[in-house]
Amino acid sequence: MGKSNSKLKPEVVEELTRKTYFTEKEVQQWYKGFIKDCPSGQLDAAGFQKIYKQFFPFGDPTKFATFVFNVFDENKDGRIEFSEFIQALSVTSRGTLDEKLRWAFKLYDLDNDGYITRNEMLDIVDAIYQMVGNTVELPEEENTPEKRVDRIFAMMDKNADGKLTLQEFQEGSKADPSIVQALSLYDGLV
Score class of each variant (00 low, 15 high):
residue 108 Y to T: 10
residue 91 V to W: 12
residue 104 A to E: 09
residue 76 K to L: 07
residue 159 N to E: 11
residue 183 L to K: 04
residue 37 D to H: 05
residue 38 C to V: 15
residue 93 S to C: 05
residue 84 E to L: 10
residue 54 Q to R: 04
residue 57 P to S: 03
residue 74 E to N: 02
residue 84 E to Y: 15
residue 108 Y to D: 15
residue 18 R to Y: 04
residue 61 P to M: 03
residue 3 K to H: 15
residue 16 L to W: 15
residue 44 D to Y: 07
residue 53 K to E: 08
residue 180 V to P: 14
residue 89 L to A: 00
residue 20 T to H: 14
residue 182 A to V: 06
residue 135 T to W: 00
residue 85 F to L: 11
residue 104 A to R: 04
residue 138 L to W: 01
residue 122 L to Q: 12
residue 11 E to C: 15
residue 172 G to V: 03
residue 87 Q to R: 11
residue 177 P to M: 10
residue 60 D to G: 13
residue 171 E to I: 09
residue 21 Y to L: 04
residue 60 D to C: 15
residue 50 K to P: 01
residue 82 F to S: 14
residue 176 D to I: 15
residue 61 P to F: 14
residue 29 Q to D: 14
residue 158 K to P: 04
residue 9 K to R: 03
residue 18 R to P: 08
residue 168 E to K: 10
residue 5 N to Y: 14
residue 151 R to Q: 09
residue 150 D to V: 10
residue 53 K to W: 09
residue 64 F to Y: 03
residue 189 L to I: 11
residue 146 E to V: 12
residue 126 D to H: 07
residue 38 C to R: 09
residue 132 V to P: 04
residue 54 Q to L: 09
residue 166 L to A: 14
residue 104 A to V: 08
residue 167 Q to S: 14
residue 157 D to E: 08
residue 29 Q to E: 10
residue 168 E to W: 11
residue 32 K to Q: 14
residue 59 G to P: 00
residue 52 Y to A: 04
residue 59 G to T: 00
residue 53 K to D: 05
residue 145 P to I: 14
residue 49 Q to E: 05
residue 49 Q to R: 14
residue 140 E to C: 02
residue 39 P to C: 03
residue 78 G to S: 04
residue 18 R to W: 14
residue 77 D to N: 12
residue 181 Q to L: 05
residue 23 T to L: 06
residue 129 Y to Q: 15
residue 71 V to N: 08
residue 35 I to T: 12
residue 115 Y to I: 13
residue 87 Q to S: 00
residue 25 K to L: 11
residue 54 Q to G: 04
residue 136 V to S: 03
residue 124 I to T: 06
residue 162 G to Q: 07
residue 15 E to K: 14
residue 54 Q to T: 00
residue 152 I to R: 05
residue 32 K to E: 15
residue 181 Q to I: 04
residue 4 S to T: 06
residue 28 Q to P: 11
residue 96 T to A: 09
residue 74 E to D: 14
residue 18 R to K: 03
residue 5 N to W: 14
residue 12 V to W: 07
residue 20 T to K: 12
residue 142 E to F: 09
residue 80 I to T: 11
residue 23 T to R: 15
residue 2 G to V: 03
residue 79 R to C: 00
residue 74 E to K: 13
residue 160 A to K: 01
residue 87 Q to I: 07
residue 116 I to F: 06
residue 166 L to D: 07
residue 32 K to R: 10
residue 137 E to W: 07
residue 163 K to W: 07
residue 143 N to F: 08
residue 188 G to D: 04
residue 112 N to I: 03
residue 30 W to S: 00
residue 18 R to T: 06
residue 97 L to R: 08
residue 182 A to R: 11
residue 169 F to S: 05
residue 66 T to A: 09
residue 184 S to W: 09
residue 149 V to E: 05
residue 31 Y to W: 02
residue 56 F to W: 09
residue 13 V to P: 01
residue 18 R to Q: 12
residue 10 P to S: 12
residue 17 T to C: 01
residue 104 A to P: 02
residue 178 S to V: 06
residue 90 S to M: 00
residue 70 N to H: 10
residue 108 Y to M: 11
residue 46 A to R: 03
residue 147 K to E: 12
residue 31 Y to N: 12
residue 123 D to I: 15
residue 14 E to H: 11
residue 46 A to M: 10
residue 19 K to I: 05
residue 12 V to G: 15
residue 15 E to L: 01
residue 132 V to Q: 00
residue 44 D to R: 14
residue 93 S to F: 02
residue 63 K to Y: 01
residue 111 D to H: 04
residue 99 E to L: 15
residue 70 N to S: 10
residue 178 S to M: 14
residue 79 R to L: 02
residue 178 S to D: 14
residue 73 D to I: 14
residue 38 C to G: 09
residue 18 R to A: 01
residue 157 D to N: 11
residue 107 L to K: 01
residue 24 E to R: 06
residue 87 Q to V: 12
residue 142 E to R: 01
residue 159 N to Y: 03
residue 85 F to D: 04
residue 64 F to A: 06
residue 78 G to H: 13
residue 101 L to N: 05
residue 27 V to N: 13
residue 134 N to M: 03
residue 27 V to W: 15
residue 156 M to K: 05
residue 74 E to V: 06
residue 70 N to A: 02
residue 158 K to E: 15
residue 154 A to L: 04
residue 160 A to Q: 04
residue 99 E to G: 10
residue 82 F to T: 04
residue 54 Q to K: 08
residue 81 E to F: 02
residue 144 T to V: 12
residue 24 E to A: 12
residue 149 V to A: 09
residue 23 T to C: 02
residue 140 E to N: 02
residue 9 K to M: 11
residue 6 S to W: 14
residue 155 M to A: 12
residue 46 A to E: 12
residue 96 T to E: 09
residue 147 K to G: 03
residue 152 I to C: 14
residue 167 Q to H: 03
residue 34 F to A: 06
residue 185 L to M: 02
residue 158 K to S: 00
residue 9 K to C: 06
residue 95 G to R: 13
residue 106 K to V: 06
residue 157 D to Y: 10
residue 183 L to R: 11
residue 153 F to E: 03
residue 97 L to W: 05
residue 55 F to A: 05
residue 111 D to A: 11
residue 52 Y to W: 06
residue 8 L to M: 14
residue 30 W to A: 00
residue 14 E to K: 10
residue 19 K to V: 06
residue 111 D to S: 09
residue 102 R to N: 06
residue 110 L to V: 05
residue 139 P to G: 03
residue 90 S to V: 14
residue 134 N to K: 04
residue 18 R to H: 09
residue 103 W to G: 05
residue 148 R to K: 04
residue 50 K to F: 03
residue 54 Q to C: 04
residue 78 G to L: 09
residue 27 V to A: 15
residue 153 F to P: 00
residue 112 N to H: 11
residue 156 M to E: 07
residue 119 N to A: 10
residue 181 Q to D: 04
residue 91 V to I: 06
residue 59 G to A: 11
residue 164 L to R: 06
residue 50 K to H: 01
residue 179 I to T: 12
residue 76 K to C: 12
residue 128 I to C: 13
residue 9 K to I: 13
residue 97 L to Y: 12
residue 90 S to K: 03
residue 83 S to P: 11
residue 95 G to E: 13
residue 25 K to F: 13
residue 22 F to D: 02
residue 16 L to R: 15
residue 177 P to L: 08
residue 133 G to S: 07
residue 101 L to I: 09
residue 64 F to H: 00
residue 104 A to I: 03
residue 112 N to V: 01
residue 58 F to H: 11
residue 128 I to Y: 15
residue 96 T to R: 07
residue 166 L to I: 09
residue 99 E to H: 01
residue 151 R to T: 00
residue 190 V to F: 01
residue 15 E to Y: 13
residue 73 D to G: 06
residue 86 I to F: 14
residue 78 G to K: 10
residue 106 K to R: 10
residue 123 D to Y: 01
residue 186 Y to H: 05
residue 28 Q to R: 07
residue 128 I to P: 15
residue 103 W to Q: 03
residue 136 V to T: 13
residue 68 V to A: 10
residue 149 V to S: 13
residue 5 N to L: 07
residue 76 K to E: 10
residue 161 D to C: 14
residue 95 G to F: 02
residue 29 Q to T: 08
residue 49 Q to K: 03
residue 36 K to W: 12
residue 71 V to A: 07
residue 25 K to A: 12
residue 107 L to Y: 08
residue 185 L to W: 10
residue 123 D to N: 10
residue 160 A to I: 01
residue 38 C to D: 01
residue 141 E to Q: 08
residue 48 F to R: 02
residue 122 L to I: 03
residue 41 G to Y: 13
residue 113 D to F: 05
residue 56 F to P: 06
residue 45 A to P: 04
residue 183 L to M: 11
residue 104 A to T: 06
residue 107 L to N: 05
residue 180 V to M: 12
residue 24 E to D: 07
residue 149 V to W: 00
residue 22 F to L: 10
residue 114 G to M: 00
residue 34 F to W: 08
residue 42 Q to T: 14
residue 109 D to N: 07
residue 113 D to C: 13
residue 165 T to F: 14
residue 144 T to K: 05
residue 152 I to V: 09
residue 15 E to M: 02
residue 3 K to Y: 03
residue 188 G to Y: 13
residue 38 C to Q: 00
residue 38 C to P: 01
residue 133 G to Q: 14
residue 105 F to A: 00
residue 174 K to E: 15
residue 114 G to T: 01
residue 151 R to H: 12
residue 164 L to T: 03
residue 3 K to C: 15
residue 133 G to P: 01
residue 35 I to S: 09
residue 17 T to W: 00
residue 189 L to T: 13
residue 176 D to L: 07
residue 173 S to Q: 04
residue 33 G to W: 02
residue 171 E to F: 00
residue 118 R to K: 06
residue 30 W to G: 03
residue 123 D to W: 01
residue 28 Q to L: 13
residue 92 T to V: 03
residue 184 S to H: 00
